[in-house]
Amino acid sequence: MNQPLHSHRPLGALDQGEINDVTELHAAVIREKPEPREGFEPLSLWIVAGIAVLLFWGGSYLTAYSGRFEAGEFSEFQHGRPLPVTEGPADPLAALKREGMIAYNGVCAACHNEDGAGKTGVAPQLANSDWVNAGDASRLVRIVLHGLNGPIKINATTEFNMVGAAMPAQYDGIGGTDAKLAAVLTYIRTSWGNTAKGVTADEVKAIRLAAGVRTEAWTPVELMALPVGGGASTALSSDQLKEKLKALPADQLQSLLKELSK
């Protein structure tokens, strides 16, 4: 290969620079060792395509679920979590009971037990209790709102003494909304053999407003002294309401207003 190729060619021949010697013609090819395939196998097109698909998915997911990249956006759904689609005639009572059960099992069941049987010396029974089954749920609403303290008589026979183990206020504990409280009471009043009717959020709200601000727990005696409906009259005229509000001490009125503006 050291001598120039054209020295083999007859001068002036009408070729295009080819040479006749086959061995010499292929010398460059023969000299070449086979390329080791291993070590630099090129990237398969499938891999490139797969990466493209992944990147595309990543971009779409990022756009859809990043809450507009706002620091205060904690839900990946920009307009809140979509409501579960219920098929067929939905059963509002069952849905309410289910919601109530989750809150009950999470908070109340620690003392009242998951089957509502209560625990001796800790919390009275809720199953088959005249307190629970009363047509008027206002006492129950107040108990959950502010707690209960003192000996309580159930079904006119069973004395339950809870001095020293008072029930604390649980309104915030179960979720802090009237709807949650209504759901819990509905669950309690329709489960374990209880046959009372459910409670709505509006009823709870009315009683909560009527009860006002209160820091100490109710006693059973106090509750029994309350009129049926718990003093909450949804039919209260606006004048009556004004009078009632005027009668409130200034500090109570202020905290009530604060409560309402929440």
């Binding site: 891999i47 992944l54 990022l62 990043s66 990249f69 706002e70 956006e73 904690f74």
Partner: peptide, 27 residues
């Protein structure tokens, strides 16, 4: 958890993108 949604979403996307190095190594 109580984290800004975008932080978790970015993390999920990056986690899925880990398929690229993992499959490259596996292959």
């Amino acid at each position: 958890g109580p984290m800004p949604a975008w932080m978790i979403t970015v993390s999920i996307v990056a986690s899925v993108m880990m398929l690229i190095p993992v499959l490259a190594v596996a292959i």
